[in-house]
Amino acid sequence: MDYIKYIRKMVGNNYVILVAAGALVLDKNNRLLLHKRSDNGYWGLPGGFMELGESAEETARREIYEETGIILGEMELFNVYSGNSRQQILENGHKFYDVIILFKCKDFKGEITLNNESLDVKFFTLDSLPDRLFPSQKDIFEDLLSKIHKI
């Protein structure tokens, strides 16, 4: 079941709270995995919205696999993002506040693959991230770059 379609049938375009999960996937050279989103052409962290019955960890694992082909191993919590700064209105009129649960993962396997959600998937050094970063993740990238020495 697609939870967002389910909830939108009931509330229309009114504000809802949606929970998302993703991961900072870092390789042995401390490069960050990003995917170029097919919906808007921006580079962003892989992740997405939780489905009914999923845990945050399950959501992160499913979304990263779907968007990149990477299978996550051990993860640890990086941060939770919520509040007024997470208010969004999409082009289709859907309004929401998202709560993003973000993990850090250096333990992964698999080969990078593309699907209909990703135009490209690459690892980037933290000092040479692409210019066209997903605007709604700006606060996350700022947080990440301020904590570079702790990663």
Rank of each mutant, 00 (worst) to 15 (best):
M10F: 14
N13T: 12
N14W: 15
N14G: 14
Y15G: 13
Y15P: 15
V16W: 05
V19G: 01
A20L: 11
A20E: 10
G22P: 02
L24Y: 00
N29D: 08
N29W: 09
N30C: 05
R31L: 04
L33A: 05
H35D: 08
K36H: 09
R37V: 07
R37N: 11
G44R: 06
G47L: 04
G48P: 03
M50G: 02
E51T: 02
E51Y: 09
L52N: 11
S55V: 03
T59Q: 07
R61K: 05
I64C: 02
I64L: 01
Y65C: 13
Y65V: 10
Y65G: 10
E66H: 14
E66I: 12
E66N: 14
E67V: 11
E67F: 08
G69M: 13
L72I: 01
G73A: 01
G73E: 00
M75P: 09
M75S: 02
E76S: 11
L77N: 09
L77F: 10
V80W: 04
Y81C: 01
S85N: 12
R86T: 10
Q87E: 14
Q87I: 11
E91C: 13
G93S: 03
K95H: 09
Y97H: 12
V99Q: 02
I100A: 04
K104F: 12
K104A: 13
K104C: 14
K106E: 10
D107R: 03
